[in-house]
Amino acid sequence: MIDHANHTSTQDFILAGFATTGTLQPLIFLGTLCIYLLTLAGNLFIIVLVQADSGLSTPMYFFINVLSFLELWYVSTTVSTLLHTLLHGCSPISSALCFIQLYVFHSLGMTECYLLTVMALDRYLAICHPLHYHAFMSRQVQLWLAGTTWVAGFSAALVPASLTATLPFCLREVAHYFCDLAPLMRLACVDTKWHAWVHIVVIGLINACNLVLILGLYGGILRTVLNLPSAASRAKAFSTCSSHMTVVTLFFGSAFIVYVGPPGIPAKGMDKLIALVYTLFTPFLNPIIYTLRNKEVKEAVKRVIQRIKAVLKGP
């Protein structure tokens, strides 16, 4: 019989990170740091621009603003340990910080999952019910929907985080660059199949339900758009949804591969590479996706620049 008390006496875990050596190590570190700083700059740019320009005071840009705010915290949750492991190799992390990172990371991830569904609902109402859109999406409703996504995300993450935190651990080295569910469960002294299936059911059910809702809403959008009289109006309607669908594909695709696929299937090290997609590259790409070829954003930038120039010139 295993004495769990003896195995839980060690307070620190060791994050293995990526096996990088030689001249590539500082280059990868600098590249990752640049991506992180650009991610912060891009998302802050969207937040400031939406707040500064009244032309972007629409429900769609309100939710994009909320997404950008979320991404600032989401990317920062894991990038500190990622950069530390890239620079120093294996890095210690206390069990308390490890489980806090696990909980916050999954809370923000599930919040984004719900938020992407709300953003799909916003596009559905704007395209399928344009006459009642502003009545449906009043400022009060926007704030309520945004707040609900945060409450739902942070509540749902309690299940996988608390189950993992209560496991007895025999080993200390986490084969990842941050504390995540599967790498931590591999260190447990007990059989974790039941825990793994609970995680799949909870995270998978939330992801699947939200994805089904998004696909259903876009099915309604597609029917409405195809019935529009002109090609120009159809193109305009599709253009307002293309950015959101790109983000949805990146987010749900990587999440399902890592968290909903059968346990133990990913090849060694592949889970870390896939995790980079949604922990680093998706937050980096989101501001680009939402501003690239976006005439409203370009016009807003011009208006803000003109106001700044007018202020600098003085009366």
Rank of each mutant, 00 (worst) to 15 (best):
A135Q: 10
V50D: 04
W73Q: 13
T8M: 14
M137D: 01
G42H: 13
S80H: 15
D122M: 02
D53A: 07
L102C: 06
N6R: 12
V151W: 02
L115P: 06
V202I: 11
S162C: 08
D122G: 02
L44T: 08
T148R: 00
S68N: 06
Y124R: 11
T166Y: 03
T282F: 08
A152Q: 04
N6S: 10
A232M: 08
M119A: 04
P229L: 03
K298R: 12
I47S: 02
T117D: 01
A231C: 09
I305R: 15
L38C: 13
V258Q: 11
K295M: 05
Y278A: 01
L181R: 00
S233H: 13
A152M: 10
L108D: 07
L87I: 01
R123A: 05
A235E: 12
L280K: 05
F256H: 14
S162P: 04
Y259N: 05
V225C: 11
H132M: 09
S242D: 06
S9I: 15
R139C: 03
I308L: 09
N227L: 00
T249L: 14
A310D: 12
A165T: 03
T166K: 13
H7V: 14
T85P: 11
R223H: 14
F62W: 08
V248H: 00
R139E: 02
D180C: 07
G219K: 00
T8G: 00
L215S: 08
A300S: 05
W144C: 01
H129Y: 13
P283V: 08
V248A: 10
S155F: 05
G261A: 13
G253F: 12
V304I: 03
P26T: 09
G147R: 00
H176N: 14
Y133T: 00
R186N: 15
F238M: 13
P287Y: 10
M185H: 09
I2T: 12
P183G: 10
T149P: 00
M1Q: 08
A120G: 04
D53S: 10
E299S: 13
L222W: 11
G55L: 02
T21S: 15
K268M: 08
Y124T: 07
V198N: 09
I127H: 07
A208V: 04
C179E: 03
L108S: 06
T111Q: 04
W194A: 14
T246W: 10
T148D: 01
V304W: 06
P283D: 06
V304D: 02
S9K: 15
K272N: 15
M119T: 04
T224K: 15
L102Q: 05
P183R: 02
P183F: 11
D271L: 15
P59W: 03
L40P: 04
